[in-house]
């Protein structure tokens, strides 16, 4: 087994820590979403939501708790979509040639970059969860310590599968582009439908049929399903909708993300094998 991808990972992490501005903004941004959007929306939505009473025996959750899972998902999406950016810098500064001319298998470049993107997402997710608890997010209601630990592992597993898929996608796109501006444009364009045609901020139950159908194919929806399953349980009520999920549903969501990552892996590998950078 070759471990050279750890070399690429090591350098990516050095950069992450050294680019102070990027480091702080990436850690601060999700906290700001929670603090401003989350608090502002929940103070409004919770008033309306009380008009629809929860069914008997089902725990109603406040909006902040509901959207915290969405913020975790959104942050993971953004970080992963832009994860390939460093490859563009490498290309533009000629650094890519050092790696391409070395005996290291080319797929290791994308593995190293993906692993570092995943690590960044883990750090961000941890921060959001910690900050969310401070703001009053009711994750892991009444869970035992063991169950909390397992739930966090579950969330990380979902974040890992989801981010791997989008990081490989971002790496493949970056390998084909010439400039960071191009990546910015493409990714911004993708962010909007991915983010809004999902269950991150609101229930999809009330979507028009077309959007509802689309949202089922959106990997972000499956990530949010997984996070909510582990953080909030399999039966809860929020924003006027009753959520129930079975173990099979969650495994299905995970499988969907795994298949998505596998397809992205094939795309990225193909792109890297034939990439010519001089």
């Amino acid at each position: 087994m070759a471990w050279e991808f750890l070399t690429v990972y090591w350098r990516e992490m050095i950069r992450f820590v050294r680019f102070r501005a990027q480091l702080f903004s990436s850690l601060l941004q999700p906290a700001l979403w929670m603090a401003f959007f989350g608090v502002a929306m929940s103070s409004n939505l919770d008033r309306f939501a009380s008009a629809i009473p929860a069914p008997a025996g089902v725990i109603p959750l406040d909006y902040l708790t509901f959207m915290a899972a969405g913020v975790i998902a959104m942050t993971t999406l953004f970080t992963s979509l832009f994860g390939g950016m460093s490859l563009l810098f490498d290309k533009n500064w000629g650094l890519m040639r050092e790696m391409l001319a070395s005996p290291m298998p080319r797929t290791h470049i994308m593995f190293g970059v993906s692993l570092s993107g995943m690590t960044k997402s883990f750090i961000q997710v941890s921060i959001i969860m910690a900050f969310g608890l401070l703001l009053g997010v009711q994750f892991f209601p009444g869970y035992s310590a063991t169950r909390i630990a397992l739930s966090i592992l579950g969330i990380f597993a979902f974040v890992a599968a989801f981010s791997l898929g989008f990081l490989l996608f971002s790496s493949a796109i970056s390998m084909r582009l010439e400039s960071p501006e191009g990546l910015q444009g493409i990714m911004t364009l993708l962010t909007l439908p991915l983010f809004f045609v999902s269950n991150a901020l609101y229930p999809i139950q009330a979507f028009p049929p077309l959007l509802q159908a689309l949202s089922v194919y959106n990997p972000l929806t499956h990530l949010v399903n997984g996070i909510r399953y582990f953080a909030l349980g399999s039966d809860f009520f929020a924003v006027g909708a009753h959520y129930t999920s079975t173990t099979a549903d969650v495994l299905g969501s995970f499988a969907y993300l795994a298949v998505f990552a596998a397809v992205m892996y094939l795309l990225a590998r193909w792109t890297f094998e034939k990439a010519v950078v001089t």
């Binding site: 050279e4 090591w10 050095i14 500064w93 290291m104």
Partner: peptide, 24 residues
């Protein structure tokens, strides 16, 4: 390489480390 192909934010030692590790 012709132009300065160096990662600006790595130290001299790290630059060498990185290269050596690329070649296992």
């Amino acid at each position: 390489f012709q132009d300065d192909v160096l990662d600006r934010d790595l130290t001299v030692q790290e630059t060498m480390e990185f290269h050596g590790r690329l070649y296992s």
